[in-house]
Amino acid sequence: MQPFAQHSGLVAPLDRVNVDTDQMIPVRFCRLLTREGYGRFLFYSWRYLEGEKPNPDFVLNRPRFRGASILLARANFGCGSSREHAPWGVLDYGFRVVIAPSFADIFYNNCFKNGILPVTLRDAEVDDLFQRTEQTEGYRLTVDLEKQTIANDGLELSFAIEPSRKHALLKGLDEIGQSLQHTDKIAAFEKAHPTQAVMHDPVDVIISEPKP
């Protein structure tokens, strides 16, 4: 995973509450077998008219927000389905930071697995950022994860983040690799608390021997 330390970029406002992951990546694009290329599908139904023609009314299609890399959003961003296609799409579109008053749990968690920083700010602070973004063309912010701040000329906001999540994102840690370092502890746990799934009645299941 790519690490995240500091990022400066153009801010795009998405002024909708409870944006669910079905809106981020509609399910018909969730049938692909890869992790790449979902940026094209991000907010598909809002972003495009028939024939994938950009909808001029959708905020991300406004020329002044082209190239935005910080998404300003409303409460409960990322609710609904656990599909990781949503953060894959957010990242592939070019966003490295999402700012909102609150996030849904699974999406929030999925962001950290993909090098996206979700920043939680107070309602009033988010309201203020929406105003600034609308009022100032080319409004940019600098997000510093180490210092836990968001800044622009004269404005500095600080945000809270769980220390372990911060650490993992700063380092771009491979979590699986980290957990595998505890293989001895996992094995000891399995010995002390054996868990099995024993089939007492036959069910119609395909069982293969794992390939060595």
Partner: peptide, 10 residues
């Protein structure tokens, strides 16, 4: 599933 030995209800 075949490669890893995971049981599959197809």
């Amino acid at each position: 599933c075949r490669e890893t030995g995971v049981r599959l209800f197809d």
